[in-house]
Simulated scan of single mutants.
Amino acid sequence: MTRSTGTSAWLDLPAQDVSAVMPFYSGLFGWEAEDLGEEFGGYRILRSEGELVGGAMSVAGMTCPEGSDLPSEWGVHLAVDDVDARVAKAREAGGGIIVPADDIGDSGRMAVVLDAVGAPIGMWQPNQLDGYEFTGKPGSPVWFELMTHRYDDAAAFYTAVFDAELVPMGEGTDEGGDDVRYATNGSGESASWGLCDAAGMMPEDAMGWRVHFGVESTEQALASVRELGGSVLDGPVDSPFGRITTIADPEGASFRISAMGEATTEG
């Protein structure tokens, strides 16, 4: 595998009506969707300008253990060297199993676990498919982060299960930072995702992993979101990492857009 254990590798969208929601993403990001057919349950591979972004699938008729419909929400998968061994580590670290380890054709082997703070997280052991392509271009994934009220528990889980190397924001620099605890898995350009202590910032039911996609222009993207039936949940917010807005697609699956060319400087 070319990605090291614990780095972001894949993302996908389970949707109640994947055919109905795909035009939203095609219109917003210009994605093309390839249906893999019945053998893979109608799973769709998503590309931006021919480069891999992630996947989407229908969960119509599928329910949670308590009987409610499975929600439409973006899921994140981290690279692992051995899915089965890492699932065992997840159990030992206080996690649970949502989707047991299974082979996905000759693409790789996957599982989805519940981490120690209650957030679903996928595992991807690549074979023929290494993962999405790191491009940084508009329409591609540019960042991932876990928001939690239990920062220390999350840090312990991802360190034990995914070999995370968490670096507190501003460590080793002259930046004073603020009162929010935020760490990245890796430092500088090697960072692949973030962990945020969201206690006091967000309600408990909003916790979990969230995905950021790059856009060229915030205003153009927001106009498209509204025209295509989506909604703005929060923002835009200016930051040194881009102008960031939280969006919901027509089924309510949330994600963030980041116009990195509109980043502000601190000071």
Rank of each mutant, 00 (worst) to 15 (best):
1 M>S: 09
5 T>I: 13
6 G>I: 14
6 G>A: 14
10 W>F: 08
12 D>Q: 08
12 D>K: 11
13 L>I: 02
13 L>H: 06
13 L>M: 06
17 D>L: 07
18 V>H: 05
24 F>H: 02
24 F>P: 00
26 S>T: 15
29 F>S: 07
33 A>S: 12
34 E>C: 01
44 R>H: 14
45 I>W: 10
46 L>A: 09
49 E>Q: 14
50 G>S: 14
52 L>A: 15
53 V>T: 05
54 G>D: 05
54 G>T: 04
55 G>Q: 14
61 G>Q: 08
63 T>N: 14
63 T>C: 04
65 P>W: 12
70 L>C: 11
73 E>D: 06
76 V>Q: 07
76 V>M: 12
79 A>Q: 12
87 V>I: 08
89 K>Q: 13
89 K>L: 15
90 A>C: 10
91 R>L: 04
93 A>P: 02
94 G>H: 09
95 G>S: 02
96 G>F: 08
99 V>D: 08
103 D>A: 11
103 D>C: 02
105 G>N: 10
106 D>V: 05
107 S>H: 11
109 R>F: 09
109 R>S: 09
111 A>L: 12
114 L>D: 12
116 A>Q: 04
117 V>H: 04
118 G>T: 12
121 I>K: 07
121 I>W: 03
121 I>Y: 07
123 M>C: 12
124 W>A: 09
127 N>D: 10
127 N>K: 13
128 Q>A: 14
129 L>R: 10
132 Y>M: 14
134 F>R: 11
137 K>R: 12
139 G>Y: 04
142 V>T: 15
144 F>S: 02
146 L>K: 09
146 L>D: 07
148 T>Q: 09
149 H>I: 03
150 R>M: 05
154 A>E: 03
154 A>G: 04
156 A>E: 09
158 Y>V: 12
160 A>L: 01
160 A>W: 00
163 D>N: 11
169 M>G: 00
169 M>D: 01
169 M>H: 05
172 G>N: 11
175 E>H: 04
176 G>A: 15
177 G>W: 11
178 D>N: 15
178 D>V: 02
179 D>R: 11
179 D>I: 02
181 R>Q: 12
182 Y>S: 00
184 T>G: 04
184 T>W: 01
187 S>V: 06
189 E>T: 06
196 C>Q: 10
197 D>T: 07
197 D>H: 08
201 M>S: 09
202 M>C: 00
204 E>M: 04
204 E>P: 00
205 D>R: 03
205 D>T: 02
214 G>L: 00
215 V>D: 05
222 L>N: 07
223 A>W: 00
223 A>D: 07
231 S>L: 01
242 G>Y: 06
242 G>K: 13
243 R>C: 06
244 I>Y: 14
246 T>S: 04
246 T>P: 00
247 I>G: 03
250 P>Y: 11
254 S>N: 13
257 I>S: 06
259 A>H: 04
264 T>L: 05
264 T>G: 10
265 T>K: 09
267 G>W: 12
